[in-house]
């Protein structure tokens, strides 16, 4: 069987090379003819999932919730000791000093990443802001979100904290963070489709041991991770329950 593998479209194009290397590692270690496919948008990804074209995915928490509970995907592993956090920032020269000073009617620059948008909007609730009284200007990458702020095209921007921290000092000097989330439990996760469930044990063994092998450790380092954490079923269920409290019904 050929395993169709993809990652959430929130990964920046420059990080996809490391995922290609991960796929090669996967092929060599498992003997599975895995094929790495990338999708430019969530719309494309969700269409591929609906067509049964995604066997293995490194998904964000927002997608994980529906993939596990509605489509029967099995959670495998998530990065150890890491979590997806969000920064809300403004342009350095903005008069806004705190989230609660942001007013209804503002434009917010963000990528299409639903995790980041969900957490970002939650952090705007103290300012009485929600989707009904703000406008989200979706940009293709975090540098473009930053550019929107510098050009005063948006009053505030949502950033994956990891992406914000990777900005050069030159960019950071032109931005000012208002708030950073500290949620600790939202993370990307490998999920396996029901069609590929026969490979679950093989993939779990591979991921669990990856950091103990020299070549596996190098692949992990390129991805920016130390090791994979294999969560017990109850931990997965708990994370999904937690996500359900954050997503609007």
């Amino acid at each position: 069987m050929k395993l169709q593998f993809t990652v959430s479209p929130d990964f920046a194009p420059e990080s996809l090379a490391a995922w290609h290397i991960f796929n090669t590692y996967l092929q060599r270690q498992t003997g599975l003819g895995s094929h790495f496919e990338t999708y430019e948008s969530y719309q494309d990804l969700h269409a591929a999932i609906d067509n049964g074209e995604v066997d293995l995915i490194f998904a964000n928490a927002y997608d994980s919730a529906s993939l596990v509970r509605d489509k029967g995907y099995a959670p495998l592993a998530s990065p150890e000791g890491q979590a997806d956090e969000v920064v809300i920032a403004v342009a350095e020269g903005s008069p806004v000093l705190g989230v609660e000073e942001l007013a209804p009617g503002i434009t917010i620059a963000s990528t299409a990443d639903p995790d980041v948008q969900t957490i970002g909007m939650i952090m705007l609730e103290p300012a009485n802001l929600d989707k009904s009284n703000t406008r989200i200007n979706v940009r293709g990458s975090y540098p473009l979100v930053a550019k929107s702020l510098m050009r005063n095209e948006a009053a505030a921007g949502f950033f994956l904290a990891e992406a914000y921290e990777r900005f050069s000092e030159v960019i950071k000097q032109q931005l000012r963070p208002l708030v950073r989330s500290y949620i600790q439990v939202i993370n990307h996760c490998f999920l396996l489709s029901p069609n590929a469930i026969a490979h679950k044990d093989q993939l779990l063994d591979l991921l669990a041991a990856m950091h103990t092998q020299a070549n596996g450790e190098r692949v992990l380092q390129d991805l920016g991770y130390k090791a994979w954490h294999i969560p017990p079923q109850e931990e997965v269920e708990f994370t999904l329950d937690l996500m359900s409290t954050l997503v609007e019904e």
């Binding site: 609660e100 939650i122 952090m123 609730e125 103290p126 300012a127 009485n128 708990f238 329950d241 937690l242 409290t245 954050l246």
Partner: peptide
């Protein structure tokens, strides 16, 4: 049951 609390708006 799981409970998640977040910062409320002052007007609410």
């Amino acid at each position: 049951y799981t409970s998640v609390r977040r910062k409320p708006s002052r007007s609410k």
